[in-house]
């Protein structure tokens, strides 16, 4: 119960912060953290794109938001996944799923369910990718995919609403800089 109230307050706070914040005209992938661990290099980033009421309406109508995320390094380790945000209309619950196409091949991981859209959105935007330790060059690309409207037997392109279709970022590791 308390957890639901806390989620509610957090959701409300994020709604207002989205409402007040200036809109992002173009999408970008912002690097939040770059960690070089013993065996892996971990990149934590945020996919930024414009969010507005129409986007909320689309998600609330059960139309999924899909990004194809490709990450690769100069060591040849690459990951291709489709990240989806969708809403269960009956339960008012938002789910985030990652369909890993490369290297595992169609492995679907569903993240935690959220009761508030903005909390789900925060999770949806956060990306964490790990690469082999020896890599010195990393690139992450995100492409907005058309969304299927299940009951109307068609798909729509949300890029007109969120203001971008494809964005990418690259990071050059310490070894390369040296």
């Amino acid at each position: 119960m308390l957890e639901n109230i806390a989620d509610g307050f957090l959701g409300l706070f994020m709604f207002f912060s989205h409402w007040l914040s200036p809109g992002v005209d173009r999408g970008e992938i912002r690097i939040e953290a770059f960690r070089e661990l013993k065996t892996r290099t971990v990149l934590e980033c945020v996919i930024l794109f414009e969010w507005n009421e129409r986007m909320s309406d689309l998600i609330d109508a059960g139309i999924p938001l899909r990004f194809r995320v490709l990450s690769y390094s100069d060591r040849g380790d690459s990951t291709l996944s489709v990240r989806t945000l969708f809403c269960d209309v009956g339960e008012y619950t938002y789910y985030i799923s990652d369909s890993l196409i490369i290297p595992a091949g169609d492995s679907v991981y569903v993240s935690k369910a959220h009761r508030q859209l903005y909390r789900a959105l925060r999770d949806y935007r956060n990306l964490r990718r790990s690469f082999t330790r020896s890599a010195s060059y990393f690139q992450i690309e995100a492409v907005l995919l058309p969304s299927r409207v299940s009951h109307l037997n068609r798909s729509i392109d949300m890029s007109d609403i969120c203001g971008c279709r494809r964005f990418a970022t690259r990071v050059i590791g310490k070894r390369r800089r040296q």
Partner: peptide, 20 residues
């Protein structure tokens, strides 16, 4: 319940897709 959920979803999708 599943049928009603689908109806709600259809209703919302129709409403949101009209302007698009």
């Amino acid at each position: 319940r599943d049928a009603l959920r689908e109806h709600i979803e259809r209703y919302r999708q129709t409403r949101v897709l009209i302007p698009i």
